[in-house]
Design a protein around this nucleic acid. Structure first.
Length: 491
RNA sequence: GGCCCCGUCGUCUAGUGGCCUAGGACACCGCCCUCUCAAGGCGGCGACACGGAUUCGAAUUCCGUCGGGGCUACCA
């Protein structure tokens, strides 16, 4: 495709089914569509495919929209905001499908089928037993008027079945190249169920045509459906859009990512404190790579660099370890003020802070967040690292820490520490640092032997942020208080 | 079963006939920095599924085998 083709009128759509939260795999497909639209200055359309009445539920649509918004994938037309080709919810477009189905019926491309699910199931099983392909046999393909009337009298409601013509269909996939299918392997398929609701393959075609979709970018699992859809376009005499099938996202066992693999919804990652930019960045790297090999890319860079040419064919395994690393990168780079804002709900949830957090308290919290951000994969981990800065008492229950606190030299160390800290002026990181460095010589001990007891006394553990930072954030009084407590504990 | 897709380090990938004794990133291991743990810096481990063919030359092309996945619904 040339630049001209894609610059002005690119229209892509993301069409999830409202059957739960937004799935990571769907988000991935949505992201690629969004990136393609934004890169080409086109339109990104959100359509809801709710024709599976059994599994769809209204609440899910809201959840999906929220997750999409959180990811920052904004749409130009869609269920909630409307647009020139609405409505954007399939169950509200039933009349349209009915019209197209009627047209197919009138032109002989489709016919009424009165077979019951039970009959079809039996036929299917029989074919399978014979080792044959389980295709619709065509029992209702040439029904006489009399027979039809009789079946109607029995109270049977017909489904509309597409009459598959005999031909070779070629899908010219933008990512995979040409893929051939022989229509002989495809049985006449249902396009309208007996309840008047269209099936997926039919609804997508009608909607994509109607919404003037130019590029269909969707997951790999749909390639086998594409010939059916192409047949439909042909029967309707409509021009084909371009197809681009991206690979699916797999679990560690290399099967389609699903609940079995653990957390697969965008919502889960959102709750766990992953940053939307990090999730977007990570997802973009699954099946696509930028020319320069960069791994950390802003949303803008992603949009600027995205191209279908650089999308790979092989499926990718969702690797939480790499997402964690990338999220850590974003946490470390984030603007401290907004990061603190994002961290508050997690601290609040752990009972460490109570809202509202304003003024000096917020500034103090920024110091806290800044001192522990280096430890985090995600924000939900912040309470366990920031916990040391809260409360007056600390527990020393870690074995290594107990050993250090019970060392005979510890009381000398702590007494000096308390004395020095009491008179320290000014009380800032710089001065604390200098004070700390003077202590070993004063005590005739190694730096380690001096500072480790202080650390344990103040935090209860042997690991944590830099000591001057800990002392400064804790403040003079609480630092001294904790040191005294520890002193009692070791005597 | 039939049809289709896919196959480079454990994982994400670069690579479109010679630039590849295959590059990067995550993970892992080691070293440095350091009161500690992270972070960071440096280094290490580690792959072209297999077999043929084409070619002076193949990760790159073709065929086959094997492996994985998807579709084959009045699910999407």
């Amino acid at each position: 495709m040339t630049e001209k083709d894609t610059t002005e009128k690119v229209r892509v759509r993301f069409a999830p089914s409202p059957t739960g939260h937004l799935h990571i795999g769907n988000a991935h497909t949505g992201l690629f569509n969004w990136l393609f639209a934004r890169h080409n200055g086109g339109k990104f359309i959100l359509r809801i495919e709710d024709t599976d009445l059994e599994r769809s539920y209204a609440e899910s649509e809201k959840l999906i929209l929220e997750d999409l918004k959180w990811l920052g994938l904004d749409w130009d037309e869609g269920v909630d905001i409307g647009g020139p080709y609405g409505p954007y919810r399939q169950t509200e477009r039933l009349e349209l499908y009915r019209q197209y189905a009627q047209r197919l019926l009138d032109e002989g491309h489709a016919y009424l089928c009165y077979c019951t699910p039970e009959e079809l199931e039996m036929e299917r099983k029989a074919a399978l037993d014979r080792g044959e392909a389980p295709r619709y046999g065509g029992r209702c393909r040439e029904l006489t008027e009399a027979r039809r009337a009789e079946l109607e009298r029995q109270g049977r409601r017909p489904a509309v079945r597409f009459r598959v013509p005999d031909e070779v269909i070629v899908v010219n996939d933008l990512i995979r190249g040409p893929i051939e299918f022989d229509s002989k392997t495809i049985g006449d398929f249902v396009i309208m169920k007996c309840d008047g609701v269209p099936t997926y393959n039919f609804a997508v075609v009608v909607d994509d045509v109607h919404m003037k979709i130019t590029h269909i970018i969707r997951a790999d699992e749909h390639v086998a459906n594409t010939p059916r859809q192409i047949l439909l376009y042909e029967a309707l005499g409509l021009p084909l859009p371009k197809f681009a099938h991206i690979s699916m996202i797999l679990g560690p066992d290399r099967t389609k990512l699903s609940k079995r693999h653990g957390a697969t919804s965008v919502f889960h990652y959102r709750q766990a404190g992953y940053l939307p930019d990090a999730v977007v960045n990570y997802l973009a790297l699954l099946g696509w790579s930028p020319e320069n090999g960069e791994e950390v890319l802003t949303r803008e860079e992603l949009v600027k660099q995205f191209s279908l040419d650089r999308v790979g064919k092989s499926p990718a395994v969702f690797d939480i370890a790499k997402l964690n690393w990338l999220n850590g990168v974003y946490i470390r780079q984030a603007d401290l003020k907004s990061l603190t804002g994002m961290a508050i709900p997690y601290l609040k949830n752990a009972g460490l802070v109570s809202e509202p957090v304003t003024g000096e308290r917020f500034d103090w919290l920024m110091d806290v967040v800044d001192s522990v951000r280096g430890y985090l994969d995600n924000l939900s981990q912040i309470p366990e690292h920031a916990g040391v800065f809260f409360g007056d008492r600390i527990d020393i229950d870690d074995g290594k820490a107990r050993k250090i606190i019970s060392d005979p030299e510890t009381s000398r160390v702590l007494n000096l520490f308390i004395k020095e800290l009491e008179s320290l002026e000014p009380f800032d990181r710089e001065a604390i640092h200098t004070m700390l460095l003077k202590m070993p010589a004063q005590l005739g001990l190694s730096v380690r032997k001096t500072l480790m007891p202080v650390r344990v006394a103040l935090t209860g553990t042997t690991a944590g942020p830099e000591l001057p930072n800990v002392i400064f954030i804790l403040g003079r009084d609480r630092s001294i208080g904790r040191a005294r407590q520890a002193l009692h504990a070791c005597s």
